[in-house]
Design a protein around this nucleic acid. Structure first.
Lengths: 122, 122
DNA sequence: TTCTTAATGATATGTCCATCTCATTAATGG
DNA sequence: CCATTAATGAGATGGACATATCATTAAGAA
């Protein structure tokens, strides 16, 4: 990944514009609007590369494949719409949750997912 | 699933004794101790059936396959050890998290996963 | 105990996602 | 503008999990 290709730019642009974590197939669909002919293999290749470079972050939700969003935003969590299945960022965080763990367990991270209906699906 | 087979009993017993959510392959391994020859297909069949009957509940964690635990326990969350990968129940809950969602979004559920080291892996 | 047939066990098959292969295309250096 | 070769696109292949198939076994009724 040493060249700036149209495809790579289109992929990053698609994720940036979305403003929410996208599945590889969503990235493909979005990027194909500016770059017809774009292949799924190229999407996976670039997602993997940009992940390694730290340009993108992976978002894993229960029972879902990894989604990708731009890195840089601070600690946050996610909301999944139970109707359209799309995932959105949520800014807040309940804070320290160590107290919830059983005695003798060391907590050093957490993931939180909210479920419900997004604005468009209400 | 209308008959009480040794296999079915062994599967439920394995999950009960574990006291934590088990992966299908963990269920197989545990149940084979009392029922050698038990097949993975039987495990999947019975997990699915007991899930449908409400006897078991599925536990989905980010990036993980579904695990299974006995139903009945009240609202709770899970802890995954980053060393042994095992999953444990945690009793508490941070409470109402609706406030975290973006305006116009309706929250009606949440999942929380804690990560760290379990007692045995510290 | 015998009979009926649901359930099992071994393995084939299916599914979904991700990666690999390789001929072709196109991004940079000169 | 050319030459070099990284990157792409199409499709094959891989891998992990889950389900389907079917001959065999065994649970439960009589």
């Amino acid at each position: 990944m040493e060249r700036n290709t149209r495809q790579r730019a289109a992929i990053l642009d698609a994720i940036s514009r979305a403003g929410r974590p996208l599945l590889p197939r969503e990235v493909l669909a979005a990027a194909q609007r500016t770059t017809p002919g774009l292949g799924i293999a190229t999407v996976y290749r670039n997602l993997k590369a940009m992940l390694a470079e730290g340009q993108l972050s992976a978002v894993e939700l229960p029972g879902e494949n990894a989604r990708f969003e731009k890195s840089g935003s601070q600690h946050h969590h996610h909301f999944q719409c139970m109707h359209c299945q799309r995932v959105f960022d949520v800014s807040g965080c309940p804070g320290d949750l160590s107290r919830l763990a059983p005695p003798g367990f060391a907590v050093d991270g957490h993931e939180l997912t909210l479920y419900g209906r997004c604005k468009e699906c209400l």
